[in-house]
Amino acid sequence: MLVFALKRFVVGILVMLAVSTITFTLTNVAADPARTIAGEGASAADVEAIREAYGFDRPIIVRYGEWLGGALRADLGDSYRQRRPVVDVVMERLPVTMSLGGLAFAIAILAAIPLGIIAGLRPNSWIDRASLTFALIGQAMPTFWFALLGIVVFSVTLKWLPVSGSSSLSHFVLPAVVLAYYATPTLMRLTRAGMIEVMQSDYIRTAKAKGLRTGKIVLKHALRNAILPLVSVAAVQFGFMLGGSVVVETIFAMRGVGYLAWESITYSDLPVVQAIVLTIAAIYVVLTLAADIMNAWLDPRLRSN
């Protein structure tokens, strides 16, 4: 198990290195950092002075090496817009995004697994068809449209929930439901497919022949094997909720990392953009590593890979 975890850890480090390289290269090639700092009305002499002062005239590989060394020390430079350390800027917004993503993930899991189990135990029934219809609508509906619809119904018309902000728990309910509804169909369909496959297995038929109760068969024997694919996908979906919260946080004006990303892109605050991409990538790697280890614990056969 330790060797398996170490192999996955090395792969995660390589992924992070690749992400950091691509992110730094694209952000420095897509825009001139010196002109971004100087502003649109700056003269060529001012831009050149800033380029020399910040070292932007040096080869990109040298600047990348310095930036990577700083990243290893949790020093990602200063924000062009806010004139303070990027790490502080991102860490201020991260709790909002983590809270939103965590609540959305909990809602998705609590909705998807029971629906998937029920649909998998009764394939082709009205419950199964209703669940698949729910999944189809969730995957086809644009996130921004569902968010705006929720605001119109629950905030403007019924006045049950606030329109925007992130100062209380009530501000998180509607955005979390919007994020969760996009992830729920995928998790539900995986659970359903896993249950249908597992319930047709020989060991399940043997358990039924022994007279075990259906609830015990499902919870103790079937569910453990049925959720193996779900673990990996759930980790990716949670990462998507954190990284893909830009639209939701912008619509609901929640001051999280997603909204910060939109602001930083709008104002060409490249160090903050780089830090956000690196942070989300690190979260993805950690979640994937945790999912691989959990899958290996649930299914020892995976440890030989």
Rank of each mutant, 00 (worst) to 15 (best):
G244V: 03
Y64I: 08
G41I: 13
D57L: 01
G243C: 04
A275V: 07
V29R: 01
G116P: 11
I227Q: 07
V272K: 00
L132N: 14
T191K: 03
V246W: 00
V233H: 04
R303D: 11
M91W: 13
Y203C: 09
I118V: 15
G194S: 08
S245W: 04
T27I: 11
M16V: 12
S264Q: 04
G243K: 00
F146M: 14
V89Q: 02
I109A: 11
D46I: 12
L158G: 06
V236Q: 10
L219V: 15
S99D: 10
R189H: 08
A193F: 08
A290I: 15
R213D: 15
V153K: 01
E66Q: 14
S125I: 06
K7Q: 12
I22M: 10
S170F: 07
I251E: 06
L260F: 04
V233M: 13
S201H: 07
I251Y: 02
R8F: 07
A180H: 01
S304T: 14
L72N: 03
Q237F: 02
G41F: 14
A261D: 00
G69Q: 01
V277D: 01
P114S: 05
L110Y: 03
D32T: 06
I293K: 00
I151N: 02
S268D: 12
P123C: 05
I204G: 11
G243L: 02
R63S: 11
